[in-house]
Amino acid sequence: MSTVVIKLDDDISTDVIYPGRYMATVLPTETPQFAFADMTEFNAKLKGKQVPPDSVIVAGKNFGCGSSREQAVSTLKGYELTIVARSFARIFLQNSVNLGLRLIEVSDIEASEGDDLEIVGKELVNKTTGRRFKIVPLPQSRQAIIDAGGLVAYTRKRVAESSAV
C-alpha cells in the first residue's frame, strides 16, 4: 500500500508535531503548512508535495503525547498520512478518530524509511523485510464515529435526530 516516509522515536509530542507558536492558526485548511515545523527538512518535503498521500509515518511508543491541540491531527490529515506507532496517547487517538486521521497501532512494529507496508487482514506486513505484525484493534466504541465519517458528521446526525430545539 504505502511507503514509510519517516521513522520517529518514542514520545513524539504534539509540540513536535505542531509547535505551540502556530496555535493561533486553527482552521484545518491552514494547519498543514506547520506540520513538524521544527524538523525543517521533513516540513519542506511535506510542503513541497514530495510525500504522496497515504504515506506512512512510523513511530515508537506514546505518539502524540502532551497538549490536546487538535492542530496536531489536522496538520497530518492535510497530507492524508497514516501513522503506525507502537502506541498512541489518549487525546491524540481520540482527536484522530474524530477528524478521520488513520492510525494503526502495532506494539512491536519494525520498519525503516523507504519500507513498503501493507495491511493483510489483521496484520501489517512489511513487504520490504517480509515481517508480519499484529494490529492492535482500536477500541470498539470508536467505530460509530469512524463509520459516520468523523465526529462532526456523527454529532450532526445526533443533533438532527434530537427533538429538542
Binding site: 466504541s141 456523527y154 434530537s162
Partner: peptide, 21 residues
Amino acid sequence: FGIGATEMASVWALGIVLNVE
C-alpha cells in the same frame, strides 16, 4: 479530563461526552 476542539463542539451541542470508556 482533556478533549480536542471538535469533541468540545460536540459537547456544546449535546451536553454529553460521547463514547467514554
